[in-house]
Design a protein around this nucleic acid. Structure first.
Length: 567
RNA sequence: CGGGGUGUAGCGCAGCCUGGUAGCGCGUUUGGUUCGGGACCAAAAGGUCGAGGGUUCAAAUCCCUCCGCCCCGACCA
């Protein structure tokens, strides 16, 4: 391909709309353009890279034995009623109405569609295991689209669904996808980390996320310094802390005036006490019922954990009125003593004694609180978010906090959907059983941008050969020099015949412009053919990732390029 | 949805405070010179100043309403 025949609108300046490097570079390198918030057009160069990622995924899915299908993006509402996700996923669903005013949804994911299919088409244990996948556009009404392709309203996803006769069999399918994912991201040149994750609204028993480590990532992760434990902060656990018993723990609760002191910082500062000694009491509405959640003053509540442990998706902080009604005090003075709503406490608070809490009375706190003795706790559960320095739940070593971009997610779903859609099969004994499912997603467009986020420098993108829009760029510094142009065209034609993706920069531009654009666009291999090199009967080959170029005799150039393309 | 920011030529920005001719750099077009790391000379095109309303003799500029975009938060397979 000649540069003059395609369109690569590079930008010199960073567009002001972009915040992170990969987003800036995708715009500057002319890979994508924005239509509106969370909506992007792929330009020819961006599409080429996207297709490469898709093909890697397709190859590895096929290799793992998965079967490609293509499901409708437009879905009847009814199947979402059947799965009972019309409500739980309300806030990401796009609603569409046809001419009969029938409600349709733009698919944010396809568990419903595939399970409906399987319920109709699979009825015997002889037909399993089966894994289906598709690469398709998904639609989600994201509250806040961000960072270009990282979080968009319309994006491309590879989703896969496995169907097995039992749990052990399903584990094998899960493992096959897990292994395929590992290969996929490796082939894309990504360094990923696999972490244990929350299953969220999709449900299921167990899940892992594939994270691209990057400071700009939206997800917090902890990993153990010593063992292999790593988890998303939404899910991460910690070794049980030592019980805290503070001074004066034998005394009875005693009120103390704390005028206007509402926050942990204010109270601990005012009482000259460490925040850890305070018990933070927050009133939540859980399924609409006021409920108190307790954690130590130096910790944050993890609402994902509340939702999971109490088996609901309806967890929100209570409004001021509800709090006042439940505690009998203005916001900021809640405490567990004497509360007559359900109270759940974090496991770290078990045995807390000599602690400080709100007194459920304006401008007042309580000293010397012993949780067991003075409050009625429904149960102690793991309710707070792990933080740096907490101990590993497996080996007690310290946990470190990092950021990551979630590019893949694998779930063991179980029978949640198969039961709702009556995806039932007959086993060897003729008994009816629900199919056991797994589901697996890769954010394809997000993966593409992650490659750039992880592989770039001050000058631009550094593509791995596997996903580069073109593996080779041939630069002719002076297009006025006919011999250079001819040699370049010959080389391009010859490489193209060998199925190498080549771009020939035939623009009438100054050399500096061409070199800078080549660096910005990040093609892995740059070949320069000029009067200067031809005089020595040579061409110049430089890797984008390397400092220096190598000078190769012209008749050996092609084989050298082919060799470099393989690595 | 709450908080903050921003909207002026394709891109990046100035002008707004203190109302009066809409500017700069890059890019684009034409001609010429130049040609190994974002050249130079000359000429030119390109703007409902986000939208609507108001104040005023006069609004990019002041006031009101709305909208888009970006960031933080809430939320999120």
């Amino acid at each position: 391909m000649k540069w003059s025949k395609t369109i690569i609108p590079t930008l010199r300046d960073n567009p002001q709309e972009a915040e992170i490097d990969s987003h800036k570079l995708m715009l500057r390198a002319g890979l994508i353009r924005k239509l509106g918030g969370g909506l992007y057009t792929f330009l020819p160069l961006g599409l080429r890279a996207l297709r490469k990622v898709e093909n890697i995924i397709r190859e590895e899915m096929d290799r793992a034995g998965a079967l490609e299908v293509l499901m409708p993006a437009l879905q009847p509402r009814e199947i979402w009623d059947t799965s009972e996700r019309y409500e739980t996923m309300q806030n990401v669903l796009y609603h569409v109405f046809d001419r009969q005013k029938r409600e349709m949804l733009l698919g944010p994911t396809h568990e419903e569609v595939i399970t409906d299919l399987v319920a109709r088409e699979i009825s015997s244990y002889r037909q399993m295991p089966k894994t289906f996948y598709q690469i398709q556009t998904k639609f989600r009404d994201e509250i806040r689209p961000r960072f270009g392709l990282m979080r968009a309203k319309e994006f491309i996803m590879k989703d896969a669904y496995s169907f097995d006769t039992g749990w052990d069999e399903a584990d094998a399918s899960y493992q096959a996808m897990y292994d395929a994912y590992t290969r996929i991201f490796q082939r894309c040149g990504l360094r990923t980390k696999t972490v244990e994750a929350d299953t969220g609204a999709i449900g299921g028993k167990w899940s892992h996320e594939f994270m691209v480590m990057a400071d700009s990532g939206e997800d917090g992760i902890v990993e153990c310094e010593a063992c292999s434990y790593a988890a998303n902060l939404e899910k991460a656990e910690r070794a049980l802390p030592v019980t805290k018993v503070f001074p004066d723990n034998d005394k009875l609760p005693e009120e103390i005036s704390t005028p206007g002191m509402r926050t942990i910082d204010e109270v601990s500062g005012f009482l000259k006490s460490e925040p850890m000694r305070l018990i933070k009491t927050l009133i939540y509405l859980i399924n609409g019922n006021p409920t108190a959640i307790l954690v130590a003053g130096d910790r944050e509540i993890n609402e994902h954990k509340i939702a999971r442990l109490l088996e609901t998706s309806n967890v929100m902080l209570a409004d001021d009125k509800t709090i006042e009604k439940a505690t009998g005090a203005p916001v900021g003075f809640a405490g567990p003593v004497g509360l007559n709503i359900p109270v759940y406490a974090d496991i770290g608070l078990r045995g807390y004694s000599g602690a400080i809490t709100g007194a459920n009375k304006k401008d007042t706190h309580l000293l010397n609180v012993d949780l067991e003795r003075d409050a009625k706790i429904q149960s102690y559960m793991d309710l707070c978010t792990v933080k740096e320095g907490d101990k590993c739940p497996r080996c007690q070593a310290s946990l470190k906090e990092k950021r990551g971009i979630e590019v893949g997610h694998v779930f063991k779903l179980g029978t949640k959907y198969s039961e709702k859609f009556s995806a039932i099969y007959l086993d060897e004994k003729g008994e009816k059983k629900p199919v056991v499912m797994g589901c697996y997603g890769i954010g394809v467009t997000r993966t593409l941008q992650s490659v750039i986020e992880q592989s770039h420098d001050a000058k631009g993108i550094i593509w791995p050969v596997s996903v580069a829009p073109y593996s080779v760029v041939i630069v002719v510094p002076n297009t006025g020099h006919n011999d250079s142009v001819k040699a370049a065209e010959t080389l391009m034609a010859s490489l193209e015949q060998k199925k190498i993706d080549v771009l020939l920069d035939d623009r009438d531009e100054r050399p500096g412009v061409k070199f800078n654009d080549a660096d910005l666009l990040g093609f892995p291999i740059r070949v320069v053919i000029s009067e200067r090199s031809l005089a020595k009967n040579s061409i110049e080959i430089k890797l984008r990732s390397a400092e220096k170029a190598e000078i190769i005799p012209i008749d050996l150039g092609e084989s050298r390029i082919l060799e470099l393309c393989k690595t």
